[in-house]
Amino acid sequence: MKEFQIVVLAKQVPDTRNIGKDAMKADGTVNRAVLPAIFNPEDLHALEQALRIKDQFPGSTITLLTMGPPRAVEILKEGFYRGADDGILLTDRAFAGSDTLATSYALSCAIRKIKNVDLIVCGRQAIDGDTAQVGPQVAEKLGIPQITYAEEIVSITNDKIQVKRRLERGIETVESAFPVLITVNSSAPHCRPRNAKRLMKYKHSSTTSNRQESNEDYLATAVTKAYLTIKEWSVNNIDAEPEELGLGGSPTKVKKVDNIAFQSKESRTLDDFDEDIDGLMKELIEAHIIG
């Protein structure tokens, strides 16, 4: 039976539903440090698809790859709790200010380093940008096909995969050989919950730098339980061209950011008393807005 080498791309995102005023820096980029951070929801759907393949092909390996600041290690741990075999944190100041293209470039360089990858799965889009660009751009950089808007893996054999895609007005089933990149929709099944045994096992996993920072006895842990040390890759680990990374490697620039002040209308304020509602409805009917 085939043992698939699967990479799941995940992003730690600010919970954009809870945003304060100091969320933006002066240069127009996002100040992630002040926001609650979560596992991008659709990336969890992607992890579930990978886990299902592993259920069917038990020798398969799932590597969770994320690019972000040191604290993004939290989502790798979350991935371990739910069944990922390995995790890589791609972190370096050189990546700061990356737009989608520079991000895709860095991720694709890292995936090349993982070697012999059959399948890359990621969420359709991240809730902080909603661009849905990184998946297709990574596929292009690797020169492999992409299947976007996946809802279900219909079938998978040693050399072919069939995927059902959710389009605006219907569905489409497509078939591809490996390697291929798949982006998963939120209409796909939710990710399975944390596994209690795995939670115990990986609770103390971290990267070496995070341990150094918190003055933990990291050397002892690394020696006794190697699996508790999460891989941490910098620019030096991925053979990337420095000029294609970060702000410098990003063709799009934020020219300016505005807090929008909409022109206020002269609004009439009503209460929910019968006479207020009745009066309003009467007006709307007489003005032929309704009726």
């Binding site: 009439r268 509602i277 409805m281 009726g291």
Partner: peptide
């Protein structure tokens, strides 16, 4: 959203909508 609204009704949706339905049914 109230800033850009022509009419602002301060109240609960489940109270206001039935009143709108009732008035409309009775007057059209």
């Amino acid at each position: 959203i109230n800033k850009i609204a022509n009419y602002v009704i301060t109240g609960r949706v489940e109270n206001v909508i039935p009143k709108m339905i009732k008035y409309y049914k009775e007057h059209t």
